[in-house]
Design a protein around this nucleic acid. Structure first.
Lengths: 172, 172
DNA sequence: TATTGTTATACTCTATAACTATA
DNA sequence: TATAGTTATAGAGTATAACAATA
């Protein structure tokens, strides 16, 4: 693996937030604008495909993804933390998915305030179908990036994430 | 510069969308979840500070940033492309900023359908103050990442962005 | 016919805060 | 007192689509 990525020719000028970067902008700002452009590019595409092909939204998909990985279910406060949104929003998304029979609230015996949310069999099935297609989208969108570059990127973003969490301890 | 980033110990488990990655998830999906986590982490913080300290929003800030870099102004359709939102939304944000005296619509002679949007002197001043503080936030948030890592990251994200644009030519 | 911008609409996501029921 | 979840509210952002004016 090399550092050649840093020495490549300038990119073509795609129209986005990065378009008006100026020569005197500092490295961190340029990096942030590019990070934001990349993420928005992919996220918008994924949102639009989720809507078109599965009539769902990213938050709904994300919630089902979290639940799919914990078959016994998750408390709403856990979901709230993982999805980084407030409690009331989790109630709203849960209500939608419950009405469609994709998740269920399961009472727990030891604490009558809380319940576990988990996927129903129908929810598991629906999510499995979406997840397979979703993963294929992601594979394809990232497929031009060589394996080593993906690994490097993953590692560097891990450092960035740790560093930011240590600066914003309110989040951890 | 080395590839050491790829060989580091696993990250602490911060509660976010990445929390439930499974051993059999493929590299591209892991990378995408981490990219999304990092961006959301920073973006949420920036949104919240823009709200608290300047009583503004990210789209408003972004629009002023675009305009600040083109003193003669931009057409609304240009802004629409750069900000990757539809035309109606640009009208809405422009209306807000115009009412506050931060931008103005300037008629162009050769095409009476369109006008140029540009910052007013008050808008320039207000943006300059915000931009300086905003850049300081970004500098700080990225400051733990060594210079070489920032450069590598910038380069790799550039490759990713090009690759995605070439897959989604509708955007270019 | 195509393009620029506006308007109207509807929906989702979001935070905040007050509330309840339990612990 | 503190915690889990609900409800109500208000605001922002978004896409879609119909529209007027102009090219």
């Amino acid at each position: 693996m090399t550092d050649s990525a840093a020495q490549l020719a300038p990119l073509p000028d795609f129209p986005d937030l990065e378009s008006h970067v100026r020569p005197d902008d500092h490295q961190a700002l340029r990096l942030w604008l590019r990070l934001l452009s990349c993420t928005n590019l992919i996220e918008n595409e994924v949102r639009s495909r989720l809507r078109a092909q599965f009539n769902t939204t990213l938050p709904r998909f994300d919630m089902m993804a979290q639940l799919d990985r914990v078959p016994e279910g998750l408390k709403m406060s856990d979901l709230s933390r993982y999805m980084m949104v407030t409690n009331g929003n989790i109630t709203g998304i849960t209500d939608q998915l419950e009405k469609e029979g994709l998740v269920e609230r399961v009472k727990v015996v030891n604490d009558r305030r809380s319940s576990l949310i988990r996927l129903t069999p129908a929810g598991k099935k629906a999510f499995a179908e979406m997840a397979a297609v979703h993963e294929q989208w992601i594979q394809t969108l990232f497929s031009d990036l060589p394996d080593t570059d993906r690994t490097t990127l993953h590692g560097l973003l891990g450092r960035l994430k740790s560093s930011i969490h240590s600066q914003l301890p309110s989040l951890a």
